[in-house]
Nucleic acid binder design. Structure first.
Length: 414
RNA sequence: GUGGCCGUAGCUCAGCUGGUAGAGCCCCGGGUUGUGGUCCCGGCUGUCGCGGGUUCGAGUCCCGUCGGCCACCCCA
């Protein structure tokens, strides 16, 4: 029986690990530098958590959730995103009683049942960073600047940052009403696709403008946008975010039609786009979610955060020619005629206890095969055990010596 | 979920208009190299994604299915 990894999942092989570990190490280090603390939540949650927060009508809930019933009859769902679980944990463990904001991050696998493509997986990894408990525009800007710094630190430079404000409960309902009215009035000038969107998710009628027929594009140019309909508070908040980004040298495009897929977003939204990424060009997206904590049973609490796809980041790095060196070993052991392997392996244990990385040939290779392994290992030192004695070379530039096998380790210790 | 392209050794691929499979790399061994992935020689590895069908005969044609990629949808 031949079994393959389930559709849309992938193995991260040893040869890919150095780059993955590098990416994750940089993400975690910079999150720490910005004052964010790690948190981990379960891979699955009560289904209701996601239905309530992402929105009944969102694509995630409509068609992308991995939902199952456990033996106790509970409906559970593999997390499609990390923000709602973190807010759930925030409320459940009383983090709202601790100093605010709570600045949290996690690197975790996410699950969405969508059609796999390059850079889009059913199981994928995300860095998720959340600042819960502050309405300050400074936090919005800090989060954006944090990811900008992550990209620069990793060596990705060809990206674009799009930002927008989609208003809050004070101004969005009125805007939606105006938009609805406009769409109804101008339905005749719109194509089928746009009319469908007008019904299902009106904010998205502006998506993919370039692909729309010229007439439709021209008509939509006259439609009201959220940007010009913001209330004073939202307008001021958005202006502050932009001012702060300017002040710390983060360049961005204001994209008045930028809308995100989950219902809980308010005010600031943003996306980092890798122009080389094809249809899956969004490498990170986030926004403010001021009603979310209350939605999961906490007190009215503002929040803001983003998710960043690790796979897409790794792809962007590979495109940028970034590579990471695999960790090597220090000393490689080879065995010749009548080698006292028992004594040799005991010496390896001593070296490892002293923090010196060792490996040996366990495949019964020929002498030449073992030399090849030595070269492959990248070790700077080696030991060739023959009978009760060993030929040792402690370093690439060091002199060779012959020592008794049971005192072999000493040759490598300082 | 919809449409298109693709699926041959671990990897990258060749295989003309149908006649039961090849190369390079990798891996293993031998030699060479006054010492560490060089060079030379040899060797191993394939239910041609899977299942049906057409045919005397299919990797090569048809259908289905699974998987990958691309576009749509949406997103990280």
């Amino acid at each position: 029986m031949k079994v393959e990894a389930p559709r849309g999942t992938h193995d991260i092989l040893p040869s890919e690990q150095p780059l993955w570990q590098h990416v994750i190490e940089v993400c975690e280090r910079l999150c720490g530098l910005y004052g964010y603390r790690p948190i981990q939540t379960p891979v699955f949650e009560d289904t209701a958590l996601f239905v309530r927060t992402s929105g009944e009508g969102s694509d995630v809930v409509q068609k992308e959730m991995y939902t199952f019933t456990d033996r106790g009859g509970r409906s559970l769902t593999l997390r499609p995103e990390a923000t709602a679980p973190i807010c759930r944990a925030y409320v459940e463990h009383g983090l709202h009683r601790e100093p605010q904001p709570q600045k949290l991050y996690t690197v975790a696998s996410m699950y969405r049942y969508s059609a796999p493509q390059k850079g889009r997986y059913r199981e994928h990894w995300q860095l998720s960073v959340e600042a819960i408990g502050s309405a300050d525009a400074g936090v919005d800007a800090e989060l954006i600047q944090l990811y900008d710094t992550i990209l620069r630190t990793l060596g990705v430079s060809a990206y674009r940052l799009a930002i927008n404000s989609i208003g809050d409960t004070a101004c969005r309902p009125a805007y939606l009403e105006r938009l609805h009215g406009w769409l109804a009035e101008h339905g005749g000038q719109l194509d089928e696709d746009t009319r469908t969107k007008a019904r299902t998710s009106p904010l998205r009628v502006f998506d993919n403008l370039d692909a729309k027929p010229p007439g439709v594009r021209a008509a939509l140019a006259g439609a009201p946008t959220i940007g010009e309909s913001l209330c004073d508070a939202c307008r001021e908040h958005f202006a502050s975010v932009r001012r702060l980004l300017d002040a710390c040298g983060v360049s961005y495009d204001v994209e008045p039609t930028l809308v995100r897929g989950l219902d809980y977003y308010t005010r600031t939204t943003w996306e980092f786009v890798d122009p080389a990424g094809g249809a899956q060009s969004t490498i990170s997206g986030g926004g403010r979610y001021d009603g979310l904590v209350e939605e999961v049973g906490g007190p009215p609490t503002p929040g803001v955060g983003f998710g960043a796809g690790i796979e897409r980041l790794v792809l962007a790095l590979e495109d940028a020619g970034v590579a990471a060196a695999p960790p090597g070993i220090d000393v490689f052991f080879m065995f010749g005629e009548g080698a006292d392997r028992t004594a040799a392996l005991a010496q390896m244990a001593l070296l490892r206890a002293a923090g010196i990385a060792c490996d040996a040939d366990y495949a019964g290779r020929s002498p030449k095969g073992q030399r090849t392994q030595l070269a492959r290992s990248g070790a700077s030192g080696w030991a060739l055990v023959i009978g009760e004695s060993a030929r040792v070379k402690p370093g690439r530039e060091a002199d060779e010596a012959t020592v008794p096998v049971d005192r072999l380790a000493e040759a490598f210790l300082p």
